[in-house]
Design a protein around this nucleic acid. Structure first.
Length: 880
RNA sequence: AGGCGCGUGGCUCAGUGGUAGAGCGCUUCCUUGACACGGAAGAGGUCGGUGGUUCAAUUCCACCCGCGCCUACCA
């Protein structure tokens, strides 16, 4: 038996002190470490490496806590839990943050500054243009800043009590991850899954990089239809409708629906663009919508994805006028590729556009189109009416500010379109929680339009481990890349020479050209399972841990992170990366809007931790079910804190009771334990299905309404009885057994307060120094219970409730003494309640009682027939 | 426009083929020796709408309405 002296304990749990103490103790005792030598079944978690872009918000706390509860449960179930943590530090979010923080821009040609200061830019520095720094310096700044950010994340994770094995920490830019990502690329290259090609690609003009389909989002944008008159060669005219008049110089054809009577006669003839006087073909296409605009449209290189398709299928010429910087490039009409019937006029018009951004060019060209002199044969201005405002969806890079353009560049792709079926099949093999999330995966995969563009024209990322031979003509041969030597990885082709070459041969005829691009960050983070399990570095370990058990993540990155991870596992090892995916919901602000930095509605977690304690914050996180978006509600935190306090106080009370050693013998105590056992089983079932919220609810309901409000009150008198030593032993033994079970039941959810309580004696008694290494409650805890009838407990509850109701109806307090109590119930119920009667009468403060047996009453129903309140003792007047 | 999810007391959310649940909030009462961050009692809902299946529907089916998300939609 455990006996504590509650005198030294406050009435409230000091969460702050406990968090510091236990975090230190856990880390010193390494209780969350994966045991590589253990033969126990592993439970392997593919923890999401958070993007360390600087700011934390409650959304982070939310989903990571949910995973932690499952990890803790599995650990208590005896699984050898593999729970790593990574940091996703490479990529655009970091670059953008570094640019702002230090007020710099990367300029690959800039000279390297060996003594670059790592200091936040001050206001004075921000007034000037951003400082240009070399690629090497820029990467240094990225590394320095992310190191700081990672510290903040790590501190939060530890305070939250995430039971991560910190010896498994990695970052997606560290040496091992770079090596692995390059290895992944070389493997795909060897197997023919990647290719590079010069083709129109989705391009962000601000970041000046290609992006992948998965990173594209539609945004509604206000635009306008411009109705522009085109002449037909040999006579005639028609009016096209376009929202992008600035692309008129890039017009390469005109198309209409083949069944459209208005334009049928035009097919096969040639149109002449206004202003630039370029003859273009007119062709029929089923893709044209007769109802939209004027039913006839111009095809440009490139206005949208359909333009790209027409350009390919109709073998149209290429007139790329928008440059990588989003400005109209210098082109000359009348020269190669830009024919014109009137080059002088065309170049005059184009002079108004060159060097301008798309937006500026649009404004300028509208003015040009209004000029009547631009018209052919005096037919009036080409712009036949005022622009007609419309709202339409435009593709943006999800992190970008200006619409994407299709720009012809050379990029590397991973072939996906020919593997859709097997990728869909892989998704079906994985268990999704909740199950309907698999539909998101399937829909996305079915709708894939493009292979995965994996090259980015950025700096802070993992370089492609390839070079290209340079011919005697000085041109690089991109179709015969020189792969890096696997043993030499990671390599940086911009500063290292390929095998068999010397640095002097860089960019020289007969030499080599180093690939300057870096991987899409998803290319690396989609390898998180391989990084954590050490894939080729430790093949034995990888075999043991892969495929993993669980991937937790949120739903908006199903199309990226989940999808690409499945792709990699498939292409590298023809398998699935994990058996289960648990999809967390979002945290919404109280108005049900998604929390986001840009909206300024973000709640930061630190003050919540200070105010309510980590356990309470966890309680809030764990109250939300998987896949369910949850409005942030501080009330739930208060409820969590109450639960923590209650647990603390109830434990203090229970462990302060003492009795002679012995076992649970009384029917009531046994009956109560049977109900507890059922609760444990139910919570276990919930957790097996990853339903941590259901388990918490079950545990909480039992703890509050069955344990503290009922059982503890009923046996209070007996637990300190001097006249009934056996009864006292039974009560105290049951209380302590129940508390030991309840503490373990709550341990995955409230790790701090449960560990604190455990340390009051359960640690020594059980031989498990930490509750988090103690076994999840099981049959072993309830030995000797056998088929005890829980009815005795139910009857006692019903009895107490009836008395409370009667007291309350008379305005008496629960503690009010009763001179007389006459109660009726069914005979069977009377038999059930009889052994508990002394406990119940003591709890109800009854002096004289009568229990009547009445056949007409239903089971467990108690009717208070007569109740006489005792005189209230005169309160001692101690006026303040 | 298609798909998925949701719509239950004032609020946040569970749940179920057979008299509707919790917490918060509200009302009344109680400072009892673990806990007032506590305890007892109570008020409050035609479970979005309309049909259908069924002895019985909040629960199953169909349609509709509202909200959210995903996908598509740059002429």
């Amino acid at each position: 038996m455990i006996t504590i002296d509650p005198e030294g304990l406050s009435s409230h749990f000091d969460s702050r002190a406990a968090e510091e103490r236990w975090d230190r103790a856990w880390s010193q005792r390494r209780i969350y470490d994966f045991d590589a030598g253990s033969s126990a079944q592993a439970f392997v978690i593919d923890t999401p490496p958070p993007t360390v872009s600087g700011s934390l918000h409650v959304g982070h706390v939310f989903s990571y806590t949910q995973t932690d509860a499952l990890a803790r449960y599995m650990r208590m179930r005896g699984r050898n839990v593999f729970y790593p943590m990574g940091w996703d530090d490479n990529g655009l979010p970091t670059e953008r943050r570094v640019q702002n923080y230090f007020h710099v821009r990367c300029e690959p040609g800039a000279t390297h500054d060996a003594a670059l200061e790592l200091r936040m830019a001050d206001d004075a520095a921000r007034k000037g243009p951003p400082r240009k720094v070399s690629r090497g310096n820029f990467i240094e700044l990225c590394l320095a800043l992310t190191a700081e950010d990672e510290k903040a994340f790590k501190a939060l994770w530890r305070r939250l009590g995430l039971s991560v094995d910190w010896s498994l920490e990695y970052s997606t830019i560290d040496r091992r991850s770079r090596r692995l990502a390059q290895l992944s690329f070389l493997d795909l290259l060897k197997k023919g899954h990647v290719y590079n090609v010069e083709a129109p690609t989705l391009w962000d003009v601000d970041f000046r990089t290609a992006v992948a389909q998965a990173e594209v989002e539609d945004r509604p944008v206000r635009g306008a239809f411009h109705h522009v008159r085109f002449a037909v060669l040999g006579g005639g005219e028609f009016t096209i409708a376009t929202t992008r008049p600035e692309l008129l110089p890039a017009c390469v054809a005109v198309a209409a629906h083949p069944g459209d009577e208005r334009y049928k006669a035009l097919f096969g003839r040639r149109a002449v663009t206004p202003l630039f006087r370029v003859p273009v073909s007119i062709f029929p296409s089923l893709l044209v919508d007769k109802e939209k605009g004027s039913g006839i449209l111009m095809v440009c290189t490139f206005g949208d994805a359909t333009d790209v398709q027409w350009w390919r299928e109709e073998r149209l010429p290429l007139r790329q006028v928008i440059g990588r910087d989003g400005r109209l490039a210098a082109v000359r009409f009348g020269s190669e590729g830009f024919p014109s019937l009137d080059p002088a006029a065309a170049n005059e018009a184009y002079g108004h556009l060159v060097g301008r951004t798309v937006k500026e060019a649009q404004k300028a060209i509208v003015e040009l189109l209004r000029r009547p002199e631009a018209a052919a044969a005096g037919a009036g201005a080409p712009l036949v009416s005022e622009p007609q405002p419309v709202e339409h969806a435009v593709k943006f890079y999800e992190k970008g500010d200006r619409p994407l353009e299709f720009i012809t560049t050379r990029q590397w792709f991973v072939r996906l379109l020919d593997r859709k079926a097997e990728l869909i099949e892989a998704g079906e093999t994985i268990q999704w929680h909740p199950d309907f999330m698999r539909t998101r995966y399937r829909n996305w995969t079915e709708n894939l339009q493009l292979d995965w563009c994996v090259s980015r024209q950025r700096y802070f990322g993992v370089p492609f481990p390839v070079w290209y031979p340079v011919g005697q003509d000085g041109a690089a041969d991109f179709q015969h890349p020189i792969a890096a030597d696997e043993a030499a990885l990671p390599v940086d082709p911009t500063s290292e020479a390929p095998p068999g070459y010397g640095e002097a041969q860089r960019d020289r005829p007969g030499g080599f050209h180093g690939e300057a691009d870096v991987f899409d960050t998803w290319f690396t983070s989609s390898l998180s399972p391989q990084i954590a399990t050490r894939w080729t570095d430790a093949p034995e370990r990888h075999r043991r841990l892969f495929p993993m058990d669980l991937r937790p993540q949120s739903h908006e990155i199903i199309r990226t992170w989940a999808f690409y991870t499945i792709v990699k596992a498939r292409l590298h090892e023809a398998t699935i990366p994990w058996k289960h995916v648990a999809i967390s919901g979002w945290v919404l602000d109280p108005d049900r809007k998604k929390m986001s930095k840009s909206k300024g509605n973000v709640t930061t977690p630190t003050h919540l931790l200070d105010q309510y304690g980590a356990d309470a914050v966890r309680y809030w996180s764990l109250s939300a079910r998987l896949g369910t978006d949850t409005a942030f509600d501080e009330k739930v935190l208060k409820v969590g804190r109450r639960l923590v306090t209650k647990l603390f106080n109830a434990s203090k009370y229970v462990l302060a009771q003492s009795a002679q050693a012995g076992s649970v013998t009384r029917a009531l105590d046994l009956a109560f334990l049977v109900r507890l056992r059922e609760t444990v089983e139910q919570a276990g079932r919930e957790l097996e299905a990853f339903e941590y919220a259901g388990a918490l609810e079950v545990a909480e309901r039992f703890f509050w309404s069955r344990f503290t409000d009922a059982y503890v009150e009923i046996v209070k008198a007996r637990a300190r009885s001097d006249s009934d030593p056996q009864g006292r032993t039974s009560a105290v033994a049951a209380l302590q057994l129940a508390l030991g079970v309840l503490v373990r039941l709550f341990a995955p959810f409230l790790p701090y307060v449960t560990e604190e309580i455990w340390s009051w004696g359960y640690d020594r008694e059980s031989g498990h120094a930490s509750v988090h290494r103690a076994p999840w409650p099981s049959a072993a805890d309830f030995e000797g219970l056998d088929d005890a009838d829980p009815g005795a407990f139910d009857a006692a509850l019903a009895f107490l409730e009836a008395v409370h109701r009667a007291k309350s109806a008379r305005g008496a307090s629960v503690g009010r003494h009763l001179r007389l109590l006459r109660v009726a119930c069914a005979p069977a119920t009377a038999d059930l309640v009889a052994p508990s009667l002394p406990d119940l009468l003591a709890a109800s403060r009854v002096e004289e009682h009568h229990l009547e047996r009445r056949e007409s009453l239903s089971p467990l129903a108690f009717e208070v027939v007569e109740i006489v309140l005792a005189e209230r003792p005169e309160p001692e007047k101690t006026e303040a």
